[in-house]
Amino acid sequence: MMENETKTIEIKDLDFYYGDFQALENVTFDIPENKVTALIGPSGCGKSTFLRTINRMNDLIDGTRVDGDVIVEGDDIYKDEIDVVELRKEVGMVFQEPNPFPKSIYDNIAYGPRAHGITDTEKLDEIVENSLKHAALWDEVDDRLDQSAIGISGGQQQRLCIARALAVDPDILLMDEPTSALDPVATAKIEDLIDDLKEEYTIVIVTHSMQQAARISDYTAFFLMGEVIEHGPTQKIFEKPENQKTEDYITGRFG
């Protein structure tokens, strides 16, 4: 299925627990480089939990436990010697609600690079401009970089958050329902952006909208009750799914 593609992330027998509750069970599949992989499934199926195992954001929740391997670019990220801070530099994340800092547009983008020790103004200017251009936002904000990021529209805020993630130069971008708070026009812009970004980044996106998964992804994984029911090329999942549960879900005959 993916013989010609480089695997960026490999997941092997992954179990995840919130206290006694098992949220993920025996998840095993690979995520190829420079492709968009969509995670779909009903609410509470574990797709967001799974996404957060890839940059260990679940560590922030007390009482969670992980079994199995998540191998990102060759390193098992749950090994003791892994530095979570370094991992998150490589694996950027965009959240469901746009969450810019209450700072200027410029400072939002420069935030990551500054915290990582870049102080040279010219270098920062360059990073800010490149990141905003990559996120298809530069033309809309280049004349008001010093204005508060809280003042721009929701769709612009979300692209700002994408630019902010790009500014620390990750290889992988995780997106947790990035358009669920946006109107259709802003959603279409983000979807176009995702299509452009996959040339340089590996993208994993959780989405509530099967249609969105169909439109933008190359691979789709269908989660149900913490298990991956089916995983494969998006076209195959949406035209001839192998599993009856997948078919029931994508045709809206679920449950």
């Binding site: 950027g92 959240f95 800092f101 990582h116 902010r164 993630a165």
Partner: peptide, 8 residues
């Protein structure tokens, strides 16, 4: 979360 996710 936004900040931590940036590897900070």
């Amino acid at each position: 979360h936004a900040s931590l996710a940036l590897g900070i």
